[in-house]
Nucleic acid binder design. Sequence first.
DNA 1: ATACTATATTCGATTATTAGAATATAACAA
DNA 2: TTGTTATATTCTAATAATCGAATATAGTAT
Lengths: 118, 118
Amino acid sequence: MLESMRQFKAGVFQALGHPTRVAIVECLSRCEMSVSGLCDAVGIEQANASQHLAVLRNKYLVETRKEGNQIFYRLRDPLLGEVLEKMREFFFAHMNEAMEVLREEKKVARKRPQAAKR
Amino acid sequence: MLESMRQFKAGVFQALGHPTRVAIVECLSRCEMSVSGLCDAVGIEQANASQHLAVLRNKYLVETRKEGNQIFYRLRDPLLGEVLEKMREFFFAHMNEAMEVLREEKKVARKRPQAAKR
DNA sequence: ATACTATATTCGATTATTAGAATATAACAA
DNA sequence: TTGTTATATTCTAATAATCGAATATAGTAT
């Protein structure tokens, strides 16, 4: 049971563990949006959006509503927005290290130029 | 800047996105612990613990203190415990889907028997 | 019926993460 | 010194996640 709970939590965190999905969840925490709306807002391709949305759907983090031939997404539970909000607090509390982390990651990325496209 | 923040958040979520690391963070949210203490508590090998701790260290989620030849880990900021706490609320609010997610994942795992060792 | 638009899925190549084994380092004890 | 304990790092093989391209599906319009 404890182990199941950890698996569940880890699954949710992992679903949130990608910048594109963070962006999507942040958009949706403001209001519901169609897939094409999300593509525009986040600046990604349709197929890619669909894949990321599938990840969020599989963890039941988002719900959908069909209207005509569009599909509107929304957060399943505002609690998820609150988790993001906590993370924002955390970010500001640790601004300096946060920047350090990002600088480190860029430095590593430079050392592997074949991975630079990401 | 917005993008940096998302990368930072995603990085933190990703660091939390593994059941072993969730277990470690939960232990540490109660009290500081040595590596061997964590190994016992979580039930993992030393080398594996060290790797997971390195992930948490790289995101500045934990701090260390040396005492003799032991190293004690603690959470960098109780805010992190609060993030986990929000996730616990989320878990209980969605118990049913949570169970569904886990059942689904087990089902998928059964279909790929070569991955059964995990 | 065909055509068009919105979204989802599948496939292939690449990259990242993982566990475990072996090795390295550092503190301490005899 | 040698040995022992605690922790970290490196390496390898396996697994998983990612992107982009191509394809599929479903709704709507003509």
